[in-house]
Design a protein around this nucleic acid. Sequence first.
DNA 1: AGCACGCCGACT
DNA 2: GTCGGCGTGCTC
Length: 710
Amino acid sequence: MDLAHVPQEGQQDRDPATAGWRRVSVAVDAPQHSGLTGPLDYLGPQDLSPGTLVQVGLGRRDTLGIVWDDPPTPESPDDALPEDQLRPVGAALDALPPLSAAWRRLLDFAAAYYQRSVGELALAVLPPQLRDLDDTQLRARLKKLDKAEAAAQQDPVTVAPERPALTGQQAAAFAAVQALAAEPTPPPALLWGLTGSGKTEIYLRAAEEALAQGRQVLVLVPEINLTPQLEARFAARFAGHTIVSLHSGLTPAQRLRHWLSAHLGRAQLVLGTRLAVFASLPRLGLVVVDEEHDPSYKQQDGARYSARDLAVYRGHLEKVPVLLGSATPSLETWQHALAGRYRRIDLTERIGGGELPKVRLFDMNRLERKKGVTTALSVPLLDALRKRLERGEQSLVFLNRRGYAPVLHCDQCNWKSDCPHCSAHQVFHREDRTLRCHHCGVSQRVPRACPSCGNPDIAPLGRGTERLEEQLAEALPGARIARIDADTTRLKGSLEAQLSAVHDGDVDVLVGTQMVAKGHDFRRITLVAAVNPDGALFSNDFRAPERLFSLLMQVGGRAGRDAAQAARSELWVQTWYPEHALYQSLQRHDYEAFASSQLSERVSAGLPPFAHLALVRAEGRTVEAAKEFLEAAQAQAMELPLAMGLLLYPPVPMAVARVANVERYQMLIEAGHRGQLQRFLREWLPSLHTLKRRHKGLLRWAVDIDPLVI
DNA sequence: AGCACGCCGACT
DNA sequence: GTCGGCGTGCTC
């Protein structure tokens, strides 16, 4: 890289080329825990506008930076470097229009809220390839994009797309969305719609309106690979429009191309996963967040942002409507709607009058218990599956645990297949005869006999999808059984292949993990069975019931999408606790009752959405290192006046305390108000960087704002 | 996080 | 004698 100028050993740069240059601030990829927070100061030409990408020297390396907003000029803060110590910026990527002020404000907010440096976040959400291109190469890419654009406009689509007539309820919902868009500062809207109630059609109509006004539309989906049909529906409706996708599954070149297309304002529709919330969209007119309750919207490493929450902020920032769609909204969103901060729009009827599947709670206590033997497959469930087979209908058996059995066990010496590096069991995978740790990934061959006492009779305990598939094959001879989970879909394209086998009717019984619950539309399935869902009822994870309810509603929604079959569609729940309030609400398809009981529990327990949480995690070589660091951090926190009124819980080991020989501890902080928590963290976290240096075995620490799991 | 510098063991 | 182990420290 050719930096314009490299200063000689701290001397002031006297090159005439930089004469008249001024202080500019540049966001660079310097992680917050380096101690550097905001953008750094450089010297740049007068006409360098904010949002421009520039090459800059940082330490001993050259890196890409983004010119940020003007630094506080005259009596700058005391910690600002004097101008003669600033390095000059290098070449600018002038070919690219600068990133807008709205985009920069979104990043400022996200970085501050999730406690990261702006530069780190901003550079992380730009297409990685942008970093490898110079201005000339970029110009070439843009020219290519122009050509492709021109070619596409050669054959304009003239066929008017078919639009289904709206039902009365849909028409009312759409009118509500239109009213929203007409407001000067539209509030976010919760589109609360059952599976099959036609939410997507509302998205399409709303998008159509925005497009008609020359605006761009951003549609977020939880996992793009699980929702190709949404992309297909948008493509079918908006033939002739430019639609691009943005997600991590794209090749670097595709990702750059799609991003550029959005940034230049050419892509009218941008469909993507959580990272797409940061897409640069100069004419944004509408944001849709489909399945807004989905945990995938929360980034789980690095900057742990919630794309759904940022979408709401972005809508507010750009005065643009945000549609949050879900059949089972997150309790946060639901509470916002109850409080009137979000507009609620209801879709409570299924299109075509289709009925919701009948929920049958099968009481496992009624089974005669054969000594010690429990089976996942009760006789009545097998009968129900056989009935489907006879009628030529499909069934889905849902079990959220992959592998053959979660642990191997020796009866004689009590040996268990524990992972040598983690505090977790190694899962028995029969297919390839391995024991695998789902946390650190180590894999080994299954021992022939107990490694501890030599007993040849080591037995699998519990059951996963592999074993369920095997048991179904035994119980239903002749049935065509398929299994879809992370193990059977590892290869590219295999998920699609398996899904189309199901669609083509080549499968009678489908076994699957939650992977099959999301989005896929299996029209011929008339029975969905959850064989072992009780675990979530008594989990330590306060959001487990919420996830279970949503998952069962969603998995049940797989059944009976075909109106003709809806009447005899069933969701079968095998449970030891049929009287549990969650199942009772589920049986009535009563999300409202479920939400209200959960919300009252959350109020009394002081949990979100009635409290705001942050989690500080520490990873160390030893338990002591991790624990003592957090204890010291807490002691420092107690000194701060801002800690008043906050709840700081003592450090505790994480649920899986050791992963790959790293000990993990965490500490919860609870506040009544977001602002209070934010102010405290801003004061407290910087001191942890220095604290880390004094704790030897500490590997790293991180903070998670609004954690999903505590 | 990179990417240096810096001071102690097994090789050409 | 050096190549390289990763501990420590800095980046406008």
